[in-house]
Structures are given as C-alpha cells and as structure tokens.
Design a protein around this nucleic acid. Structure first.
Length: 553
RNA sequence: GAGCGCGUAGCUCAAUCGGUAGAGCAUCUGACUUUUAAUCAGGGGGUCGUGGGUUCGAGUCCCACCGCGCUCACCA
C-alpha cells in the first residue's frame, strides 16, 4: 500500500480528524500561511482534568491528519496553554493545607503557594502534573504559561491594541451580561500592586496612548493607574481568550460544548481586533455515572490517574477518539470494554485497506503507526488475543490479585508465554489485577456453610492434605468427586455413567464450593483451580471459610 | 429563553461513501475430562422513537413531532 494510496484515502476519509484537518486546509489555502498553530487550554486551579487530556489527544489526532494531508509542507505546532494567571476563586476540597491556601484567595494562581509544598506555586504544581502526564504519553507539544507570557511582554502589543479598541470590545461583551454586571464590567483586571489580588473593579478611565487604566480600590478608595502591559494587568476570560488567539495567531482550538457561547463572543472580539478566530469544534462533555457533567471542582467521574491505574493510555486515547460529539459516561465500568475495543482495532488493522485503516481508531491513536497486536500461540488453534475481559475472569476465578497467579493460568494456555516475552500482555495482566482488586473483589458475597457443607469442606481439606505435593489437576478433581459422592446431598443418580453403587456428583457440590470459598455463583473447574492455586493455599482458604473470616470480609 | 446530544435485540452499545441490521453480555441447545468453564459449535430474540420527504434503495440525508438528558445565560 503506497503513500499515494494513503493520501488518496485521506483526502476523502470521513473520520472526524480528517474532517477537521480539511477545515485547516481551506484556511491555509485562503491565507497562504506556512505554519499552523494548534492550541489547547488548561485551567490550573485544579489537578489536571481528564478532559484536558482528551483535548490534547484529540487535537493531536487532528494535527496528525493535517500533516498527512499536507505531506508536512506546512509546519505545525501544538501549544498547551495554562491560564495560570487567573485568580484563585475558591479553595479546592481535595488538597492539603487548605487554610494556607484560603489566605491567598483572589491572587494569580502562580502567586498562590503550593498546598503540597513541592513547587513555587499552586499553578506550578498543577502545571507540572499536567506536563508529567502529557510527557508520559509522549505528546508533542509546547507548554505555555499565561503568567510568563504576560510578564515577558509577549502580549503587550495585543493588549495595547485591545485598549485602543476598548469600546468595540465592550460593545460585544456588555449585551451578554446582566444589567448589574454590565454596569461594572471591565475586560482589564489590574493586579493590586500591594495585595496582589486580581481586581474585578469598574474602570475609572483609561488612556490608550499611555497604555494604562485607572481604577479605585473599593476597600480604601485609593485610586491607581496601572499599565495594561507587562503583567500588571490580566484580561477577563473571554477577552483573554480572544487576545491570545490574536496575539499568537492560533489557527485551531477545540472546546467543550459548555463554551459554545464563549467561543462566539471571543471570536467576535478577535474580529474587532482585526484578526481571524481559530477553527475548531465543540465536543460533548463527559458525564459521570449519574449523567452529570464531570468537573474538577466536584471531583466526580474519573481522573487521569484513576484510568491509568486500570488501563493503558492507549485505551484512554481510544475513548477520546470515539464520537467526540456524543456525550459519554466516563466511569470505571467503561474501562474493560474500551480496552478490549482497542485491542480489537489493533488486531484488525493489518488486514485493512487504507480506507478502513484511516477510519480505524488505532491509526489515529498511534499517529499512523499502530504496533502489531500481541497474540499468544495456542496450540493448533493458532494466534489468540488475550482480552481484558478474559483476564478479569481469570483473576476472579483465581480470586487473586497476584499477576503471578494469572500468569500461571496463561502459561497453561500458552506454555511459551512469559511476562518477559509478552511485556504488553504483562501490563494488561497488572491492569486486570488492579481492576479486579478494586471493583470485582469488593462485590464478592461469601456464603457461610451449613452443617453438611462445613463437614464436606473438612473432608475436602483432609483429602487434599493426603494428596502428594505435585498432584495433577486430574487427580485432585477425582479426589473431589470421591468426597462429593459420599455425601447424600450431592449424589446425582441421573448423571451420565452413574450407578447406585457409584453415584455421580451433582453440580450442587461445586456450586457450594464457589459460594463458600470464592464468593461467587460460578467458578473454574475446581481441580484445575487447586492445582494452580496450590493445595496448601486452598486448605488455608477452606480454613478461613470455616472460621467465618470470608463472610466477615 | 438559547444551544446541543441521544432514542437500534432483554441490557450496554456498533453499523465507514446511502446498498441484505451486527457485537459483547444475558438466555437457550449441543459437544467435551463421568458432572464444574478460562473452551468450542449453534439457536432464538428487531416496526432501527413517530410521521412525512428525497432516492432504484434510508438506521444513515432533509423536515416536523414525541420522549429522555445535558450545557449556557455568575465565573472560567
């Protein structure tokens, strides 16, 4: 499959990153520009939000589609812009040293101390967390700090320009506000020279030529004249966004649907400044398990760290790829399915034509170079992909959060496999084990045994003790049958091959073992389970069950 | 009030350019170590929310309506 075929398929691909990239192609054709700037926004008043990751991941997909469409003839950059000069509005609930932070309300986030005591400021801490994650995923981006940009003078020309167009900006903003707010609204927010608080005060006047605004401290009635440049002032949110687009020449920025009105207003402001607003689209928001909007202040839904505890970054990337225009529940229970969907896409990719490949999320997740799927050799049946769902089952039947126990099962399935030869499968095993430990194991409901059941378990334990250490699954299985056969409750004369002298064992017997020992209604072939889990370990498990420790836990 | 999204199998959801509606789970049947599933094979289950329109052909495109939900209108 040639590069030409790839290009041809890309030109017409309906995959949304290509649809978006084609908007930019039009833009470049119109303006003749030789580079394109992508921007993603981040508000560091809280820990990095999973939506922020989504925005970077999705923007990266558009960027890559654009690069394929242009053969890299147009340079691209991705700016991760942190709005870290914003004033701290309220103290987040999920941080230490809240009192200390409380004393800094209203100051720029870069001037609020780090509640974790690790960085120069709260913003620096959260910025570092964001960068750490973006780096760990390998995103190609440039980090930008609003505070640094303001202070460096990089925004000065645009700020002075906006001051010149003050009336035009007000004409756009004021109708969008309620009367009482409109009466005091100023797009320019001076930083109080003494308290360092970002002041939301009405302007007493401004001097476009001098580049200053005049305002009054409501507490002292003292009047100040502050330059709009050099970081002495910042802008209100919507004018700020517009100014940034204008000053940096941002060509593409997507945002959530909660910002639809903001995009409209900011776009009008950019035009009033004589610029062109970026292309982009409004994606749907993520919902928590109850269908509520995920927000960093509420701390609902999933965090990046939580997802990465149970699944790979690639699977999270897949979640972000799929249907950005549809609201999706983002909660723990979508993880297994998303992981297996990802593995499935990886597996079908090599067999596809370019047209399908470009619609395959794996292509977008891996910037056009998805790795080969990791498959196990399974006897004559050939290659098999081990799914997350299967590993969860394994963990459940083994009732184990130990990767080694799962590998024991896997090696029986595919003897040549080891964690060293299958590193990605090993990672998957670790994720599955973590998911099992935190979401499946707590839901187990152990049943206490009655007299007959307890006696049966005693017998099983004794019988196991009498078996040789290296007893096979088969030997153990037959030993179990002999126990069950001797107990009237579990005799089954209708079983295939059963005789009155040698009755079969009903499935009740095994159901009892699962319910009492594994806390589940179903389970593995028990002989195999014991062989892998270990005879002594199984006896210990029985002992715990008889003491009532499993029911209690 | 304004702007969106979603209605497809019992459940959760797919369905690329408009071309015979699919998957997973659940359920049922069968095979297998004398019975257990981490196995395999197979079956049933649908008026694609409703009604129009375009088309040779509509889950898909257009219009209207119904239902559910979200967002914005203070801040970002």
């Amino acid at each position: 499959m040639s590069q030409a075929a790839l290009r041809e398929a890309a030109e017409v691909s309906k995959a949304w990153p290509f649809e978006e990239a084609r908007k930019l192609i039009q833009r470049v054709k119109r303006t003749g520009q030789k580079s394109v700037l992508f921007e993603t926004g981040y508000g560091p008043s809280g820990l990095p939000h999973i939506g922020t990751f989504g925005e970077v991941a999705r923007t990266t997909m558009v960027r890559h589609a654009f690069r394929v469409l242009t053969d890299d003839a147009i340079a691209t950059r991705l700016l991760a812009f942190s709005d870290d000069m914003d004033g701290l509005r309220k103290t987040p609930d999920n941080i230490p040293n809240r009192e200390r932070i409380q004393a800094n309300l209203g100051k720029p986030l870069t001037e609020v101390p780090d509640p974790f005591g690790e960085f120069d400021s709260f913003a620096a801490h959260n910025n570092a967390r964001l960068r750490g994650f973006l780096d760990s995923f390998g995103f190609d981006y440039e980090f930008a700090s609003s505070t640094a940009y303001y202070k460096s003078g990089r925004f000065d020309a645009a700020l002075l320009h906006m001051l010149e167009r003050f009336d035009a900006v007000q004409k756009i903003m004021l109708p969008s506000l309620r009367e009482e707010r409109a009466a005091t609204y100023s797009p320019f927010l001076p930083i109080h020279p003494r308290t360092r608080i970002v002041m939301q005060v009405p302007l007493a006047g401004y001097d476009a030529e001098a580049g200053t605004i005049r305002w009054r401290d409501p507490a002292t009635d003292e009047e100040f004249e502050t330059p709009v440049t050099g970081g002495a002032c910042k802008l209100q949110w919507k004018p700020d966004w517009a100014m940034r687009w204008y000053a940096l020449g941002v060509d593409y920025e997507m945002s959530g649907k909660d910002l639809i009105d903001s995009v409209k207003l900011s776009s009008q402001i950019v035009r009033a400044l004589g610029g062109t607003p970026p292309d982009g689209f409004n994606y749907e928001l993520f919902l928590d398990e109850k269908g509520q909007k995920i927000s960093k202040s509420k701390g609902n839904g999933l965090t990046i760290d939580e997802w990465l505890t149970y699944a790979s970054p690639e699977s999270l990337s897949l979640f972000m790829y799929q249907r950005p225009s549809a609201a999706k529940r983002l909660y723990f229970d979508v993880i297994p399915r998303t992981v297996d969907d990802y593995l499935g896409f990886l597996e079908t990719y090599p067999r596809q034509e370019w047209k399908e490949r470009l619609g395959n999320p794996a292509w977008h997740i891996h910037s056009g170079e998805p790795p080969a799927a990791e498959t196990l050799e399974h006897g004559a049946e050939g290659q098999t992909t081990v799914s997350f769902a299967m590993l969860l089952n394994l963990a459940a039947v083994a009732n184990s959060d130990s990767p080694a126990v799962l590998w024991g099962f896997l090696r029986r399935y595919a003897p040549s496999a080891t964690p060293e030869t299958y590193p990605r499968l090993d990672r998957l095993v670790r994720y599955a084990v973590a998911y099992f430990r935190d979401f499946v194991a707590p839901k187990k409901r152990y049943r206490a045994g009655d007299e007959i059941e307890r006696a049966a378990l005693e017998s099983v334990s004794a019988k196991l003790a009498a078996l040789p250490a290296g007893a096979s699954a088969e030997e153990i299985q037959h030993a179990l049958y002999d126990i069950g056969r001797a107990i009237p409750r579990y005799q089954d004369l209708n079983a295939k091959g059963a005789t009155p002298e040698r009755p079969g064992v009903s499935s009740e017997f095994f159901a009892m073992l699962y319910a009492v020992l594994l806390g589940d209604e179903r389970g593995p072939r028990f002989g195999s389970f014991v062989a892998l889990y270990g005879i002594e370990e199984t006896r210990a498990l029985i002992a715990k069950a008889l003491k009532g420790e499993l029911v209690a836990a």
